[in-house]
Design a protein around this nucleic acid. Structure first.
Lengths: 108, 108
DNA sequence: TAATATTACGTATTACGTAAAGATT
DNA sequence: AATCTTTACGTAATACGTAATATTA
């Protein structure tokens, strides 16, 4: 179960349907529908209940939401941490040097 | 940055090289090498230092390890949580029903 | 030479989008 | 009718494995 798939699942939940999720993710509706169907097939149970034209969380989906949120956030954090390191290597460090040499040039 | 990619990264780190990671993941060496190269290209910085035939963590890689561990574990937890729900729905619950109707037919 | 990592290249899998069909209000 | 989801199908992007090419112990 990939964090990318989990993000798709979360978007469908948050946007309240596949159509809105597709817009938010800049994908077509069938792409999102198939992705969810694949996850459900992989898990052997539905994540959403298609009842009365509505796409609402199933019991399994309700269980998965907080876990998916953690997984997606953690994956993003991993990337952010490295990018932040890159900035710290060429940003604030240079600022500190300037501050030490000139005593000005950076806001407190 | 996908949890699957992060898992590849972690495996290379833990196994101490691309060859061993390839064996552990049942992939070829080039597949792992390219996957890491793609991540590095996406981040704009190396995750490993190829020094003297060794594949060791770079500064960025060292930063990423704990984040990657959390992300991979969280993604697995998401799947496990739903599968655990499935087991709990077909175990104790069914047992209770049978007990109510028949008063027998299942082991305590 | 032995072991490792990377390129090159063709293939296979996967994922997508468009179009059409099914279902529900 | 209108909206939403799913299926069908052809195509495009991605990822793989084999083979060949470095690079280093």
């Amino acid at each position: 179960m990939d964090s990318d798939a989990l993000n798709t699942f979360l978007t469908v939940h948050r946007r309240g349907g596949i159509s809105n999720a597709a817009k938010a993710l800049h994908r077509s509706q069938p792409a999102i529908s198939r992705r969810i169907a694949l996850m459900e097939q992989e898990l052997g149970m539905p994540l959403f209940e298609r009842i009365a034209g509505r796409t609402m969380l199933s019991d399994a989906g309700r269980v998965m939401v907080p876990y998916a949120e953690r997984a997606v956030a953690a994956a993003q954090d991993a990337e952010n941490a490295v990018r932040a390191l890159a900035r710290s290597n060429s940003g604030p460090v240079a600022l500190a040097v300037v501050g030490t040499l000139a005593g000005a040039g950076c806001r407190p």
